[in-house]
Computed example of a mutant assay.
Amino acid sequence: MNVLPSTSPPKHVSLLGYGGLLPFIFLALLIPLSLDYRPLFAIALVNYGAVILSFVGALHWGFAMTVHDMSTEQRSDRLIWSVIPALIAWIATLLAMPLGCLLLVIGFVVHLRQDRQLLRVMRLPAWYLPMRLRLTLVASVCLLLAAMVETLHS
């Protein structure tokens, strides 16, 4: 595995990464608890998920621009992939809420797979993939639970 030795993320990385899960968690909890504001919370959840999926896709743009020992083909692959999550996210915002959530989950899971592909191209800190897996799992569970609630209450 092509990883750098650090086993735990810097404290600020953990705070930012895991703190980014709070809107997923709170919105997923508010959707079943609020009849009056459920549509607003559902839209907010899909939109937040879209923003985050776009953000993680942009990481690959940054990698393509800064990693010096990539081949031209590898750099091109990273640049192409980097815009795909934003396109997936945009489409998710145009779909009915349950389908938008499902598409975002698919986008997060496929992006996690792309992050694993990075190990063929560059070295990553040892904490990066485990943290990305945890972030993806929590965000995906929140999106799936909200989609299920929305489907049951429609």
Rank of each mutant, 00 (worst) to 15 (best):
V149L: 01
T66D: 10
S34E: 12
L119E: 03
P32I: 06
S140H: 07
G100R: 00
V46L: 10
I84T: 14
E73R: 14
L59E: 04
Y37S: 01
V110N: 00
V83R: 13
N47Y: 09
Q74M: 14
V141I: 15
V149H: 08
L4S: 04
V3C: 03
G107H: 06
L29P: 07
L29C: 13
A44I: 00
W81E: 14
L59C: 07
A147S: 08
V83S: 14
T93L: 12
L124D: 07
D69L: 10
L133N: 05
M70G: 09
I43N: 09
V56D: 06
V110G: 01
T72M: 14
D36F: 05
A89N: 04
Y48H: 11
P10F: 08
W90I: 14
M65F: 13
L137I: 15
L53E: 09
L87A: 15
L103V: 01
I52F: 09
A58G: 14
V149R: 00
P5T: 06
L21P: 12
L94K: 14
G107P: 02
G57A: 10
L102C: 01
P10A: 03
A42E: 11
L15D: 04
G19W: 12
F26V: 11
T136F: 09
I80Q: 15
Q74I: 11
S82L: 14
I91H: 04
R132V: 11
H153Q: 10
V138R: 02
Y128H: 06
V67D: 12
I31V: 11
L152E: 07
R78F: 15
M70W: 11
W61G: 09
D36Q: 06
A44D: 01
Q74G: 10
C142Y: 13
R116F: 02
L29N: 01
V105T: 05
M131R: 10
L104R: 07
C142W: 08
T93W: 07
M70Q: 12
W127S: 03
D77R: 15
V110P: 00
G107Y: 07
S76H: 15
L129P: 05
W61L: 12
K11N: 04
S14R: 12
L118N: 11
L59R: 05
F26E: 05
I106P: 00
I91L: 12
A58Y: 14
I52L: 13
C142F: 13
P9D: 01
R123Q: 11
K11R: 09
V13D: 04
L45D: 03
R116M: 05
P5M: 03
V149G: 03
Y37V: 01
I106G: 01
D36N: 11
I80S: 15
S54G: 13
C142H: 12
L145S: 10
V13T: 09
L152Y: 02
P85C: 08
F41W: 00
L94G: 11
